[in-house]
Write a protein that binds this DNA or RNA. Structure first.
Lengths: 132, 132
DNA sequence: GTAACACTTAAAGTTAACTTTAAGTCAATA
DNA sequence: TATTGACTTAAAGTTAACTTTAAGTGTTAC
């Protein structure tokens, strides 16, 4: 019942290049993946969970190095839960600040766009006035 | 009444290294800055506005290249306002997607932290039970 | 006059996160 | 049996955004 995938299939499933999957493994974000008789990697649910986790964190810009620190603690066992929790709390704070920054830039940008819009509308009106 | 600053003072004011200010100029994000008799750059309100603009966009991760495209259109004059507006609208869309992604990661992270918290509390309770 | 200081330029170096290349292994297929 | 396709590794290359270095100029302080 355990469904396993090749590196190519895993690559498709997550839309991550095979080279990147190998790179994540060689960087220690993904534990050494089991190989079949031909020496090819066999990806299982365990890897899928890890890849999902990495993808989530990377999508928020969390660095490979930070993810590595977390994964290393994970390997050290249950007693590292307080540290892992702290890392996530720290990252969370950073992300919340980033979200705020992003919201500010979004507001700024909306204002600037609105100014341009006003300019264009004004210009349009002047054009029409001239045509009468 | 026009207050001007040296590169070192401008660097302090915006908390951007002097090397980065020169780099922005050489990349065309900042127009060639006027030099005084000794050949030193003299920063004025015009530059401050531009630096503020760049800092805002960079803080949201907008690339130097994208900012350059915008600045180049700016130089081409008023008739590029529709294109400039479109660039900002496109960037805005990207940022809004990023903000959404970020919010999802934040939620995910909060869940994971809560799980850890639950584990820790449970552990604590077990400890107490054993002590009775 | 010479040392210190604040700048200048051009070019080389750095870092993160990949990506590409080169050379080789293995199993199935013509 | 030879070619094809899917993989393997190790190492080199790429890109963005800086940062550092090296060599030089001009003004002020001793």
């Amino acid at each position: 019942m355990e469904s396993t995938l090749t590196i190519a299939q895993t690559s498709k499933k997550f839309n991550i290049p095979t080279s990147t999957l190998r790179y994540y493994e060689s960087s220690g974000l993904i534990d050494p993946v089991q190989k079949n008789e031909s020496g090819h990697r066999v990806y299982t649910e365990k890897e899928f969970r890890r890849i999902r986790f990495i993808k989530t964190l990377r999508s928020a810009g969390i660095t490979i190095e930070q993810i590595k620190i977390y994964v290393d603690l994970f390997h050290l066992g249950e007693h590292t839960i307080p540290q892992r929790k702290q890392i996530l709390i720290d990252q969370l704070k950073i992300l919340e600040m980033q979200a705020e920054t992003l919201q500010n830039v979004i507001s700024d940008l909306k204002d600037t766009i609105q100014n341009y819009e006003d300019t264009l509308v004004k210009r349009e009106l002047e054009q029409r006035r001239k045509q009468i």
